[in-house]
Design a protein around this nucleic acid. Structure first.
Lengths: 153, 153
DNA sequence: TTACAATATTTGTATATACAAATGTATTAT
DNA sequence: ATAATACATTTGTATATACAAATATTGTAA
């Protein structure tokens, strides 16, 4: 379905259509990922945090680092990590050299869950991008990056 | 910033980068729109509903129609419309021919607010798309549509 | 060293979202 | 006409998000 068909409008300016298309397509993509994660009771944000922690390769991350690196901003990283802690997927301890900071690491259970999740998420990712060839994927990535380019002033 | 710079990772597969880029760019775009609407205490969803109602040109819309046409799905259209009703931006009445249905129309106050919002939203829209020329905008729209193309089976 | 500002996280609270169950109305089959 | 089913919306409730204020710790300046 094109955006016009969906929202039952004609004559949108291409730039308006782009903005709507972007929101609509991103939600479509997220829904597919979410469906894959649903059986595991893990939200996209939680999955994202687990992946960041794995990427740290043992090196702990503090809350503000997690928040900076998240794909979409969490408004409350403390409580997001709380949920992972309750499931024993992460460890939390105060940083000895700077006791304001909290060090988060992923547990073995977290790593092994993530390993399982990788399978279903990869499947979902393939499902999302299956209609585009490599060249089109690159093109789309480049256009999205260009869209977000900051102006000098 | 490219996606790799943002999430501090190298070696993402282009298809993974696309999915992250899509989520990230859509949120970036939404944030700009949201900032424009903030002074008016109107959420994007509420703005969206008002625009749909204006597009009806007096013809009322019921809740399920609104929900179908919304850019991103609302999980509770009743309460979304409640908020607009409280601000007297819409009217609500039960459909005389089918009393299960609820007819929603936009009020004069709603239309005149929307008229004001159009200005700031257009500015925000221009800000979002300023980095791309017309040709690139079309390209991006086409690629997003193609991404979402359904497979036959 | 005491006061003040900066940093990092947590807590409180209001609002939003998701989703299942309940309600009320209309349609269909018997 | 009655029961069963489908439809449209509302309500209840749990969870998530946004954001300001509070707390704790560290760094810095007088």
């Amino acid at each position: 379905m094109t955006i016009e068909e969906h929202i039952k409008t004609t004559s949108l300016k291409p730039s308006q259509r782009l903005i709507i298309n972007l929101a609509y397509t991103a939600q479509w993509s997220n829904d597919i990922l979410l469906m894959a994660l649903k059986p595991y009771d893990i939200s996209l944000q939680q999955f994202n945090v687990l992946r960041i922690l794995r990427g740290q390769k043992g090196k702990p991350a503090n809350l503000s680092t997690l928040n900076d690196r998240m794909v979409t901003k969490a408004s409350n990283t403390t409580r997001l990590v709380d949920k992972l802690l309750k499931k024993e997927l992460v460890n939390r301890s105060t940083c000895p050299s700077n006791r304001r900071k909290i060090e988060i690491t992923i547990t073995e259970a977290g790593l092994s869950l993530l390993n399982e999740l990788d399978k279903v998420v990869t499947q979902a990712e393939n499902k999302i991008t299956t209609q585009l060839d490599n060249n089109e994927i690159e093109q789309l990535n480049n256009l999205l990056n260009k869209l977000r380019t900051e102006t000098k002033n």
